[in-house]
């Protein structure tokens, strides 16, 4: 019994894939092809520019811009970072500085469905570890990995603020509440997870400043129903 714990710890320390002290990373060479066509479409750029009037500096648009780009491309590549930097008139090093601070931004591509499992105290007390282990088993991947077919990525996060419905799992943008280990198979197969009610980037449309038609607002309200689901309801159906 002595070995496994040590090995588990070793595995844990190895599981975080990073360069080690005996390796040298070369920063003199670009990692992207500067001649390749831009990755940010004009529509994306326009959406980012739409945020300029909101803030006093262009740098402040960085977080919205990163959200928009990640929503459009699935992740933020080196090339995208360089293009964002040019658009916001800041340095690429500032962009990577900011991106790497936040857990929500990914510099490498992720699966179509990104599963965020909460591992905070309420979820752990309510059996979140079993759910996470089941997810790992079913997907055959470890935390912060993506399945070979690119269908799923598994991410863990501290507290999703859904503690009253612990344990919680977010798949893409849908919060699944009170998940139990035996629900995982059903959860993964749920087609609704792959399709969001609203295209993601529309989350960042500027607020409507003109008096909108109240009727259209009501219909918009109905569209919004169901970005969260209670797994208990799913179990019963």
């Amino acid at each position: 019994m002595a070995q496994p714990a040590g090995e588990r710890l070793l595995k844990l320390s190895r599981s975080v894939k990073r360069a080690m002290s005996w390796q040298t990373i070369n920063r003199n060479l670009p990692v992207m092809d500067p001649k390749a066509p831009p990755v940010l479409t004009e529509a994306v750029r326009e959406k980012i520019r739409g945020f300029f009037p909101r803030y006093e500096t262009k740098r402040a648009v960085l977080l919205p811009a990163l959200h928009i780009v990640q929503d459009a491309l699935g992740h933020i590549s080196w090339k995208a970072m360089a293009e964002i930097a040019a658009l916001l008139e800041i340095q690429p090093s500032d962009v990577i500085d900011t991106i790497s601070f936040y857990t929500h931004f990914w510099t490498h591509s992720k699966g179509k469905k990104v599963i965020v499992a909460c591992r905070s105290v309420s979820c752990e007390v309510m059996g979140g570890v079993a759910v996470l282990e089941e997810l790992k088993k079913r997907l055959g991947i470890d935390e912060h990995e993506t399945t070979a077919d690119g269908a799923y990525s598994l991410v863990t996060e501290e507290c999703l603020a859904g503690c009253d419905h612990a344990p919680c799992v977010i798949i893409n943008e849908k919060l699944h509440k009170r998940v139990r280990a035996e629900d995982v198979v059903k959860l993964l197969a749920d087609h609704a997870n792959a399709r969001l009610e609203i295209p993601r980037s529309d989350l960042f449309d500027a607020p409507a400043k003109t008096a909108a038609d109240p009727a259209s607002q009501n219909s918009q309200a109905e569209d919004l129903v169901g970005t969260t689901s209670d797994v208990r309801e799913m179990r019963e159906s």
């Binding site: 070369n26 920063r27 670009p30 990692v31 992207m32 080196w78 340095q91 090093s93 500085d97």
Partner: peptide, 23 residues
């Protein structure tokens, strides 16, 4: 010239430059 920045957070903080934009 802003070549250097800090990447990651917490105990994983590192100094780094953007690849292709060295110091």
């Amino acid at each position: 010239t802003f070549e250097l920045g800090i990447v990651n957070r917490g105990s994983r903080c590192e100094i780094d430059a953007f690849p292709g934009k060295p110091l």
